[in-house]
């Protein structure tokens, strides 16, 4: 009986208390999701690294991709992360109009990034690159390009949808600062993953 009361009151050292991490459950769950999603990308990047090391030769990315165009894509994504962080800051200070505008700017950044990616895919497909073959003679190169950037692009698209819902809720006064922050965490994660793909696939 005494033990039951202890558990209900949250005083037990094993109960975790009311909020052991000092954050609300939705934010904590987003962090847990980010950890697991990061592992999927880590697995993909690890297998890409292995395929590249195991391959006798690998095409020089600088000869295939336009680095200035990739720099533009990175600029767009980093800028959208900054606008998203500003949206969270505005929401925390209850400046809902500013928060909605910043979220809309972030969506614009996401759409611009997706447009750039679609252009890049179209260019490579136009040159004959496919999942199972490409003109550069190293099959895994094309496979990893489409899988890595495609998986990341799917995340960007999901993020745009989540942000569109967030913007609508914010504009109609139904969103909370916590809700915007959780959506923002996902968006920053998408940016974070791009940092690794940009470096490991396009630059090295």
């Amino acid at each position: 009986m005494a033990e039951e009361q202890l558990l209900l009151s949250g005083d037990s050292p094993w109960s975790g208390g009311v909020s052991p991490f000092g954050v609300k459950w939705n934010k904590l769950m987003m962090w847990m999701f980010i950890i697991t999603d990061a592992l999927i990308f880590a697995g993909l990047l690890a297998s890409y690294g292995f395929a590249r090391l195991a391959s006798d030769r690998w095409p020089d990315p600088a000869e295939i991709f336009h680095l200035s165009f990739l720099a533009l894509m990175t600029f767009i994504l980093i800028s959208s992360s900054a606008t998203m962080a500003s949206a969270v800051g505005a929401a925390r200070e209850c400046h809902w109009t500013a928060a909605t505008r910043f979220v809309l700017l972030t969506i614009l950044g996401g759409l611009a990034f997706l447009g750039c990616q679609a252009y890049e895919w179209a260019s490579l497909i136009g040159e004959g690159a496919r999942l199972s073959s490409n003109p550069w003679g190293v099959v895994p190169f094309g496979s990893y390009f489409f899988v890595l950037t495609g998986f990341h692009g799917t995340h960007v698209l999901s993020g745009v949808v989540v942000l569109a819902i967030t913007a609508f809720r914010s504009a109609t006064g139904r969103s909370s600062a916590d809700g915007i922050e959780v959506a923002g965490l996902y968006w920053h994660f998408v940016d974070l993953v791009w940092v690794f793909i940009f470096t490991l696939f396009y630059l090295i």
Binding site: F21, V23, A38, L192
Partner: peptide, 28 residues
């Protein structure tokens, strides 16, 4: 920089920072 400032990890409780950091690094 992204995780620390944009994702505010620098301002969270250390238990959350360690959970996220150790979670990704150890399972990775």
């Amino acid at each position: 920089l992204i995780s620390g400032y944009f994702m505010h990890l620098r301002f969270e409780r250390s238990v959350l920072v360690w959970t996220v950091g150790a979670g990704i690094l150890l399972t990775g």
